[in-house]
C-alpha cells in the first residue's frame, strides 16, 4: 500500500516537472526540472519490480538516476555556460499557451489510459500509462515550440523519460540488457547533441534552431 502511494507520488512529480518545464523561460531552471524528473522516474523500477527481480531493478534505477539525474544536467549546464545562453527568447507559442497544450496532452493521456488496457502492464497504478504518454507528448511540444538548440535536447530527454515510465510499467519488462542499451544510446545522443551545439554556436554565433534554414527544397 505504501508502495502505491510512493509510485503515485513519483508519477505526479514527473507530471509536475513536465508542466514547470513548459512554463519556464530560464534554461537553467528547465535543465534542473529535467534532472529532477530523471531522478524520480529512475526510482520507479525499485518500487515496481523489486520483488520479482531485485538485481534488474537496482541496476536500471542506478543507471538511469546516474545518467539522467547527474550526467545530463551537468553536461547541459556546461553547454549553457560555453554557449552563453540564459533564456529561451520568444518561443513559437507563448508560455501560457504551451502550458495549455501540456494540460491538453495530460487530459488526452488520461482519456487514453482509461480506454486502453494493455495486456502485461502492471496494475500497480492506473496513472502509469497516462503519465508516460503525457510526458512523451509534452517532450514533443517542447521540441517543436522552442527555438534554442538546448531546449530541443531537453525535449528529447523528456521524451526518453516518458518512454522509460511507459516501459517500466510492463511487468517483467524487456531484458535489463536492452534497457541498459537504450540508456546508453540516450546518453550518447545527448552527448553528441551537446558537442553539436558547441560547434553550431562557434560557426553561427547563435544556437537558434529556427535560423538553421539554409537547406531547403
Amino acid at each position: 500500500m505504501n508502495n502505491l502511494v510512493a509510485i503515485e507520488g513519483i508519477l505526479i512529480a514527473v507530471i509536475l516537472t513536465d508542466l514547470l518545464l513548459l512554463g519556464s523561460s530560464r534554461l537553467r531552471t528547465c535543465i534542473r526540472m529535467v534532472g529532477i524528473q530523471g531522478v524520480v522516474a529512475g526510482l520507479l523500477p525499485i518500487l515496481l519490480h523489486h520483488a520479482e527481480n531485485p538485481l534488474r531493478a537496482w541496476l536500471l534505477a542506478a543507471g538511469s538516476v546516474a545518467i539522467k539525474g547527474v550526467v545530463f544536467p551537468l553536461l547541459l549546464l556546461r553547454v549553457l555556460r560555453d554557449v552563453g545562453v540564459r533564456r529561451e527568447v520568444e518561443p513559437f507559442i507563448g508560455y501560457t499557451s504551451s502550458l495549455m497544450a501540456g494540460v491538453a496532452a495530460l487530459i488526452f493521456s488520461l482519456w487514453v489510459g482509461s480506454r486502453v488496457t494493455l495486456p502485461g502492464t502492471s496494475s500497480a497504478s492506473s496513472l502509469m500509462i497516462p503519465a508516460g504518454l503525457a510526458t512523451i507528448l509534452i517532450g514533443l511540444v517542447v521540441i517543436i515550440t522552442r527555438r534554442k538548440a538546448v531546449s530541443q535536447v531537453l525535449g528529447y530527454i523528456v521524451v526518453e523519460n516518458g518512454i522509460y515510465v511507459f516501459g517500466v510499467s510492463l511487468v517483467g519488462g524487456v531484458p535489463a540488457l536492452v534497457e541498459l542499451g537504450v540508456l546508453m544510446d540516450a546518453f550518447v545522443a545527448v552527448l553528441l547533441m551537446g558537442i553539436a551545439i558547441h560547434h553550431i554556436s562557434r560557426e553561427f554565433d547563435h544556437t537558434d534552431v529556427d535560423r538553421l534554414d539554409q537547406l531547403k527544397g
Binding site: Y156, E203, L212
Partner: peptide
C-alpha cells in the same frame, strides 16, 4: 552542421 543537427534530432526522436 545544419544537416547534421536535423538528422540527429529528427531521427533520434
Amino acid at each position: 552542421l545544419e544537416a547534421m543537427w536535423k538528422y540527429l534530432v529528427v531521427c533520434s526522436v
